[in-house]
Amino acid sequence: MSESIFDRIRAAEGTVLDRPTFHADSDREEEKLDGGVIWKLERAQFFNELDDPAWDAFIEGDWTRVLEIFTGEREWIRGEVARYARRGLRFRRLRIVEDPPTPYLQWESHSHRIFVECGHDIRALDAAEVAGLERAAALPELMVYGDRVLYQVRYDEGWTPIGAKRVDDRDLVTEAAAAVAALWKRSEPFPDYFRRVISPLATPDTRRGDTR
């Protein structure tokens, strides 16, 4: 069985960065881009969000507050979209989704819906479509900045973000961008996924502590 590009990314040598360093480093790389695409690939169906009021409201069972917070982010999101547009950048986020959706995915999807309505590019792809790429392990969580650098985002056992592995191999970065772009072409617009799968769901009851 041949190695996929995602297997090679997991095995690749790189610089391990803690969370603050990763954020600062990726911001610098974004500033160096002169147009092009920034790819974000999300595979896990649960993350433990940090410093996020909407997440805090979610785990407290306050769904009304969750939606209020997401709605209140519209102006900031539009500003981000405009900032990318001025620089000729496209931020494309590909969300791998499992069925049935986890409570976390349901929560996140309401945020993604707002982002799309404000101009962000987000698409959804059923996990069954990537099963052939996951014989060794699930797809890694990735950020790919043009053809310059990629980051394999790192999490602890509870899926709390702890930083990233930075990979500078240009050939690997270029292949990674092409691989995510190929998955993107097979995915569906996020609003279609939201209407079909998320919209009919009842409000998740997170008072039981079930966010996964």
Rank of each mutant, 00 (worst) to 15 (best):
S2C: 12
S2I: 13
S2H: 13
E3S: 11
E3A: 12
S4I: 01
S4T: 15
R8Y: 07
A11L: 11
A11S: 14
E13G: 14
G14F: 05
T15Y: 04
R19F: 14
R19Y: 14
R19Q: 15
R19I: 00
P20A: 10
F22P: 00
F22I: 01
A24Y: 07
A24G: 12
A24V: 07
D25N: 10
D25C: 09
S26N: 12
R28S: 14
R28K: 13
E29I: 08
E30Q: 14
E30C: 12
L33M: 15
D34T: 15
G35V: 09
G35E: 09
G35Q: 10
A44R: 11
N48Q: 13
N48M: 09
N48T: 10
E49G: 04
W55F: 05
I59L: 06
G61N: 03
W63Y: 08
T64V: 11
V66K: 00
E68C: 11
I69D: 00
E73T: 09
W76S: 14
I77G: 06
E80M: 10
R83K: 14
Y84W: 13
Y84E: 14
R87N: 05
L89C: 10
L89W: 08
F91Y: 13
R92F: 06
R92S: 12
R92P: 03
R95T: 03
I96G: 01
E98H: 13
T102H: 07
P103K: 06
S109V: 03
S109D: 09
S109T: 08
S111T: 06
R113F: 08
C118V: 07
G119Q: 04
G119A: 09
D121S: 12
R123A: 10
A124S: 10
D126H: 09
A128E: 14
E129L: 12
A131I: 12
L133M: 14
E134V: 10
R135N: 15
A137F: 08
A138K: 09
L139K: 00
E141P: 03
L142Q: 00
L142F: 06
Y151H: 05
Y151C: 01
D156F: 04
G158F: 10
I162A: 04
V167G: 04
D168M: 11
D168S: 15
D169K: 03
L172Q: 08
V173G: 00
V173D: 01
A176E: 01
A176W: 00
A179Y: 03
V180K: 02
L183W: 03
W184H: 07
R186E: 11
E188P: 02
P189R: 08
F190V: 01
P191V: 01
D192M: 08
Y193V: 01
F194T: 02
I198N: 00
S199W: 12
R208S: 15
G209H: 07
D210H: 12
T211L: 10
R212P: 03
R212I: 02
